[in-house]
Amino acid sequence: MTDTYTLMEKYLDGTLAGDELSTFEAQLRKDKILQAELSMQRQGRAALGAVADSEVADFEKILKKNSAHYFPVESQPAGTISKAAPRIVWRKWLAAAAAVLALVFAGLKWYATAKYEISAILAQHYAPAATPATLSGETYDLQEAYTAYRNQKYAVAIQAFNAAPADDPQYTEAMLFKGYACYESGQYGAALAAFDLVIKSSDARFLHNAEWHRLLAALAENPKSEPAQAYLQQILGDASHPYYAEAKKIERQLKSPLRYLAG
């Protein structure tokens, strides 16, 4: 049975569903300690992380639906002539239209930034292998480097991955994870070099993943650069490539007009 804290985490992440969700909501309604705990977690996340304002627009839609019903626009009594000059009405319309346009533009801008800024695109497609296939070897041990990488201690991790001897059976995988560590710490040039080494090794286990992440690293450096475009075309030229569909998607995103709006 899942403990309450875990259920609360899922609830906060919006991943609680079905019976678990209704049971949790019922408990939340009557349990003040749980309500206070939930608020603490929300506050902590809001203070140290961020709370997306994106959902406000959805919430406003629900409000507007009700507002139209409970606060109907006052109509002119029959037979009376409005003393309000038509110019004022037009001004109101113009102001409303300008506000709507501004809102639409702001919404589009937000959406474009959230989805089409290069970092957002890359975040959608970044897919490092979860764990190395093997962690311990005879002459070299990946464990220490991998642990540092998982703990986001990238400098330590990169140094430890570099310690892998070139003739060690784990060398290629060490370079792959070194590529991830460089990428995640923003060292895209070094990530490119590491992924290149993996690709040159022709180890079929890591080849496609390295090709894919080399593309992402090149795009992160400069989405318009020749190497980035060449890496993209290379994957697009091979319909059997496991990342072919992803590459198609990234190509669409890069060409989308929303990219210009994303800045």
């Binding site: 506050q43 959902e55 406003e60 409000l63």
Partner: peptide, 23 residues
């Protein structure tokens, strides 16, 4: 006017919603 009331009501709920999201 009624329209003002609707605006005030909606603005208040949005403020409450934003801060409720933040605990």
């Amino acid at each position: 006017a009624t329209n003002d009331a609707g605006d005030v009501f909606q603005d208040a709920l949005i403020d409450i919603y934003r801060q409720a999201q933040r605990g």
